[in-house]
Design a protein around this nucleic acid. Structure first.
Lengths: 142, 142
DNA sequence: GCCTCAGATGCAATTGGGTTGCGCGCGTGG
DNA sequence: CCACGCGCGCAACCCAATTGCATCTGAGGC
């Protein structure tokens, strides 16, 4: 049960809780990610921000890197060779599946699909996490 | 039981069998892929070719695209936003897992890991194939 | 409330993987 | 051996992402 719209947004609270400096670009980017129902490209984030706050392209990149390093966001490499970002909604979802549309690049989480928690890898290799990606065509592209 | 080095290489035979024009760059690229024990970047392929045949950068890209469209090769998007290619050794391996090193990008097949053949996706979505990628650090990078 | 400064931002230039356009060359079928 | 259409090489281009640097600012200390 989220508090009935406190003065500080969930994004701001998360940044404060992490003991990091709270700035307008950071809050805006994280809010955008938290509100998204699918993985967003850098470009999509920039567009979403445009209506509320002018943020430099480079700053968006840096904020995203920073969110990833803090564990507040995920970075996904898509088929179109662009990064897509996803907020980690508190859940430390170690592993979860994604659906990636080969036509439009749209990427959504598949929470119902189980991802093998551990896999057998060659001697000396050290796995950090497992990604299960389903490629195909999304509903709107069909 | 491969034939004891016939006049035509496996690559040449595969191209002929596909009813496609056989050219030096095509044979050389496919031979390189078939000999590789891991996924190769465009750059790695170019380097491997350099010792035996001068092939233009663009030609390598086009040959690779062509191999993929013929189903003779796979294309993988890596974390470093570069394509990596893998020969499909005859096996129509619909789904198989890969290990990707976050440090050097090295990508190898994990034949022992089972990939779920079918997954549940949202209504209207049409999955074509499933990719299971294990991210981590490889033996040489540790 | 004001000062300070490490760290965040904005701007411009750069990198690098990948792609495209086009004329020439060559593999293949006749 | 010839003709033709596809594949090749060259050069220019595209664009996501990165880097360098000067300026600005959030947040703790006074």
């Amino acid at each position: 049960m989220p508090a009935p719209r406190s003065r500080s947004s969930a994004a701001e609270r998360a940044i404060r809780a992490a003991g990091e400096r709270l700035t307008a670009p950071r809050a805006a980017v994280l809010e955008t990610l938290l509100a998204a129902r699918q993985a967003l490209t850098h470009h999509e984030i920039e567009q979403a921000l445009a209506t509320r706050l002018a943020v430099d392209r480079v700053t968006v990149y840096r904020v995203l890197d920073w969110l990833v390093s803090l564990g507040l966001a995920h970075r996904l490499a898509g088929e179109d060779r662009t990064w897509r970002f996803l907020a980690t909604h508190g859940e430390a979802h170690a592993a979860h599946a994604h659906f990636m549309c080969s036509r439009c690049g749209r990427t959504v989480c598949l929470d119902e699909v189980a991802v093998p928690p551990a896999v057998k890898v060659p001697r000396g290799f050290e796995p950090s996490h497992v990604e299960l990606n389903v490629k195909g065509v999304c509903a709107t592209c069909r």
